[in-house]
Design a protein around this nucleic acid. Structure first.
Lengths: 204, 204
DNA sequence: CGTTCCTTTGACCGACTGGTCAAATCAAGG
DNA sequence: CCTTGATTTGACCAGTCGGTCAAAGGAACG
């Protein structure tokens, strides 16, 4: 986020490789469960070489978290005040679910961080995230008051979308264990669409 | 689960104390992040004393997981085939949310386990959990086919209830950061009731 | 070929962690 | 008070972890 531009081409490449490896290991084992040796192995670099590009294990984690948030909040940012309310929200749901499908490791990395009490992400939650959510919640509240969607609690509507979509990434093991099915996401999309259509239906 | 009855009164007491301490530490820091020293400290016992009552760190974790599952699945077990469908499901939602409110540490312990790929709970998921969910899903399917509730995907309805209720425990930090509010649970209950009433509304 | 700067690594270190063990303490009955 | 078995602990250990460092490659350029 704060400049420090990668100079060499090889630097940019290796940083990217390390972040990819870090994502893999942090997502699967949590911050404390991840070891530099494992990340190094996954990256195909030596441990001291990791620490040549990042000053510490924590720095890798923080870099991942920062990089993640833009991707993660993009669907919410895309909620368009000019669009048709129900279509906009349903599209947000689908985009967020697609995010869980395409980027489950990012979802689990984030879930891990929040579960541990967000020791490294708290400031971002309190500032950027809260600001963005408040803004979009206000938009949804306007839609609701105008009767263009049913009466909703905007903040909790957003929480619901997060909870439902991320569940399919974070609790993937459990979902698959219960379903015994190859890909839960196909049915998930239909179901979530059905659910939110029901809540968003305008009164009358 | 497999007998091994606590003999002495002091044994029962210390096992309970250790499990309570283990819950506290495991829930806050994950399995790998938790140390025996910390659990011992939280329990007010020495580390070798812990290992007098439990053979290993993993044994404490497994004992917690086993003890947890009964509590955790009780609300779903209570879903009554003889009851009024919508009331039954709404009561399930409320009980599950109350579980998140009253037992957030248990929720986070479980979330941690699933996030890591359920290395210790997988067998239970594949057997007991799947069986229970399939049974209750069949019940819900019957209700749906009889037109007593709207058309729903039973399995994904259950996932939705899990996702939505547990979110308030597992992502508590994030929810509070965004809301800046003291107790999210009051509004959560109203909102979840509203949501599921909408989806469950019978056709016509 | 020599210089310079970027990159890579083998060897190492102190701190921590799960777990062991022998010895000490304690409780209860005789 | 003495014995016996349950309970508790200080001291210790081997393995792992994050991180350091000096020295060794490599590449670009004159």
């Amino acid at each position: 986020m704060t400049d420090a531009p990668p100079q060499t081409r090889i630097q940019a490449r290796n940083r990217a490789i390390i972040l990819e490896a870090g994502l893999e290991v942090f997502a699967a084992r949590g911050f404390r469960g991840a070891t530099l040796d494992r990340i190094a192995q996954s990256a195909g670099l030596s441990k001291p070489n990791l620490l040549y590009y990042f000053p510490s294990k924590e720095a890798i984690h923080v870099a991942l978290l920062e990089q993640l948030l833009d991707l993660w909040l993009a669907p919410l940012r895309a909620l368009d005040p000019e669009g048709e309310p129900r279509q906009e929200i349903l599209r947000y749901v689908r985009r967020k679910l697609e995010m869980s499908r395409a980027h489950p490791r990012e979802s689990r990395l984030f879930a891990n961080e929040i579960l541990q009490g967000a020791p490294r992400a708290r400031p971002v939650l309190d500032r950027e995230l809260k600001q963005l959510v408040d803004e979009k919640a206000a938009l949804i509240a306007r839609w609701s008051e105008a009767g263009r969607i049913g009466p909703v609690d905007p903040h909790h509507l957003i929480f619901s979308i997060w909870a439902l979509t991320q569940h399919y990434a974070d609790f993937d093991v459990q979902v698959r264990a219960v379903l015994g099915e190859a890909d839960p996401f196909a049915r998930a999309e239909a179901w979530l669409t059905r659910m939110f259509e029901a809540v968003l239906a305008p009164p009358g």
